[in-house]
Simulated scan of single mutants.
Amino acid sequence: MTDRAVAPLLAGVTIVEISRGVAAGYAGRLLSTLGAETILVEPRDGNPLRHEPPMLPPTNEASALFAYLAAGKKSVACDFETPAGRAELSTLLAAAEIVIHDLRPEERIRLELDEEGLRARYPKLVDVSVLPFGAFGPKAGWQAEEINLIHASGEGFLLPNGLAAERFPDRPPLKVYGHFAEYQGGVVAALGALSALIGREHGGAESVDVSVQDAALAVGAFALQRLGDGSLEHRRTRSFKYGGVLECADGYVELLTLEERQWRGLVELMGRPDWMQDPALADSLERSRRGAEINRAIRAWALEQRTADVVAQAQTLGVPMAKYASPAEVLSGAHERARHLFQPVEIPGADRLPMLSAPFHVDGAAPTLKAGPPRLGEHQHLLTSRRRRDQPAVTAEVS
């Protein structure tokens, strides 16, 4: 980690974002945090995520989700259904490098924003579509919410698992909290936009079609691989042979021991008990066969440990282990502070609050949030400034 100033990777790149959902919004957020000027084009009554709970105190008028997704962006209000609104949007697109949207195929045609039309009018514009099931194929017109996508990707079928499945065997399949699948779609869309932007220098602009279902399917790659091998994973069986979630005296930790060196570190961490000295356990296959027996011993030991102490010792010994932290602990954590992951931003209708800049570093430094979320139409002046920039110069003829 370094505190030196790093020039934003996407400085000088302009993105137009037309989003209603989390996936397209997160793609724009990631690229904005990398330095792009991301212009969020909203309907006159605002992006629907502005009203998505939970709402932030003290006024309860600011959506926490929208505040996070829109941080650093600029807002322009525009009515696409009118010729004037479409002309305003055209002004922005003409000056942009990338457009990210979640418009359904029939909407794109009606609004004259279909792939062929965009390519004809804006030959250098990278077009990124992010839809639940993609823009092509039999499901292109299907709508879906997060709960549909988490189950359509197979992940819902596998939850809860591990310790939760053991303790609550009768629970139905569960949705991961929040917008897990849609965030995966946003990551893929951002990467697709970057790839197309790089490729534009060699072969012209491209259109990127992202399916959130496909993006979330990639998370369960091991389950898909085992399905190909003839084994159907189920939430009752999807767990590490030993390790996973462990209850400690003051909370929970997660333990992972996939490699031989990690097993040896765990032996040291637990104080080299006699049962772990069994020569047969030197064989990883034998450990897998006796996973339930090993786990009973590990869980009994973990109940006597305190999370902070055991995690610190584990990391010293090279054992992958981390604590399940509360939100307050995450904000105050030494790791998060050292990496400058949270930055204070102004949120209209709420207080100045810490916000995650990005879950990564660039050249050893945390990306900097340019601002908090914008007010609706706060940057309406961009329509005029872009129009002036794009107007061709007029040269008078001399007769």
Rank of each mutant, 00 (worst) to 15 (best):
H151E: 09
V187L: 15
V187K: 06
G203R: 15
V188Y: 13
G162K: 00
G162Y: 02
A218R: 14
Y183T: 07
E155H: 11
V187H: 11
E166P: 02
S211Y: 11
S195V: 15
G192Q: 07
S207M: 12
A223T: 13
R167M: 04
L159V: 08
I198M: 14
L197M: 07
E166M: 00
R167H: 05
H151R: 10
E166K: 00
A165M: 03
H179F: 15
Q213V: 12
D214L: 08
P172Y: 06
H202Y: 11
F168C: 06
I150V: 15
P173Y: 02
Q213W: 00
F180Y: 15
E166W: 04
A215Y: 08
A216V: 02
E206S: 15
V219I: 12
A218N: 14
H202A: 13
N161F: 04
P173S: 01
A218C: 13
Y177H: 07
F157P: 00
V188G: 06
K175E: 12
H202D: 10
V208S: 11
I198C: 08
A181I: 05
G203F: 00
R200C: 09
L149V: 06
V212Q: 07
P169E: 01
H179M: 10
A205C: 05
L163F: 05
G156E: 03
A215S: 12
L163H: 06
A193T: 03
F180L: 14
G203K: 12
G156I: 01
F157D: 13
S207G: 07
S211L: 05
S195Q: 13
